[in-house]
Every structure is written in C-alpha cells, then in structure tokens.
C-alpha cells in the first residue's frame, strides 16, 4: 500500500519531465497495442493527439526500444524503401498495464483536487 503511495511520490518528484513523457509512453504503447506502425505513421498519429513537435517522438521511441517495451523490424514496401516498423513486446504490454493504472490513479487524485469547491 505505502509502496504504491511512494511510487506516486517518486512520480511526482520526476513530474516536471515525467508527466508529459508518461502521457507519451502511454499513448505510444496504447496505439501499438492493437497494431504495428512504421515510424512516420506512428509519429503522425501521436502528433494528432498530443500537441508536440514530431521530432521529439523519435527519441521517445528509441528509449522505449532500449527499455525493451518496443521492438523494431524492417518490412519491404511496394511504394518505396523498406519501412521500420514498431511493435509492442510482452514486457511492453505488462508495462502498459502498470502505467495505465498509475495514470488513472494519478488523474483521479488530480481531478478530485481540482474539482474541490
């Protein structure tokens, strides 16, 4: 119980850099949960949802790959050069479940706070 609370405390300490990225991790993993996308497609999809510059997404994808939550593979394309596809790993799915709950808990608390009269 207190571990969870402490976990959230840690999250809050890191929040200035973490909150946005936590949201991005969540977005990326949620999008890739159902279907594999190649880089450009994925970046376009996320930039539709979140108001961020597309360039900052590639470092995030790279980090997620380093964390072994994503895997990449090259796929031949009829139209042009082979595309680098991104897919979620088993670890990534587990991590997604975890951060989804954390996000829900976090937003619930924040919402409760800001809805106070």
């Amino acid at each position: 119980m207190y571990y969870k609370i402490l976990g959230i405390n840690l999250q809050i300490i890191k929040m200035d850099t973490q909150l946005k990225k936590g949201a991005m991790d969540l977005c990326v993993l949620s999008i890739l949960k159902n279907k594999d996308y190649y880089g450009y497609e994925l970046v376009q999809k996320i930039s539709e949802i979140l108001p961020i510059s597309e360039g900052t997404l590639y470092p995030i994808l790279r980090r997620l790959k380093v964390e072994r939550w994503l895997e990449t593979y090259l796929k031949e394309s009829k139209e042009g050069p082979s595309r680098k596809y991104y897919g979620i790993t088993r670890n990534g799915k587990i991590h997604l479940g975890k951060i989804k709950n954390e996000w829900k808990e976090f937003t619930k608390r924040i919402n409760k706070l800001i809805e106070q009269k």
Binding site: T17, S53, G55, T56, P59, I60, R62
Partner: peptide, 20 residues
C-alpha cells in the same frame, strides 16, 4: 518545421538519456 528545431530534438535526446 513539424519535426521541430534540431536543438530541441538534441535536448530531448539528452533528457531521454538522463531519463534512462
């Protein structure tokens, strides 16, 4: 322009490395 400034991207990458 949609990708953003190269400086911003390098900052982002630095941050991600620190993040790791």
């Amino acid at each position: 322009s949609s990708l953003g400034k190269p400086k911003e991207i390098s900052k982002e990458i630095k941050q991600e490395l620190n993040q790791e």
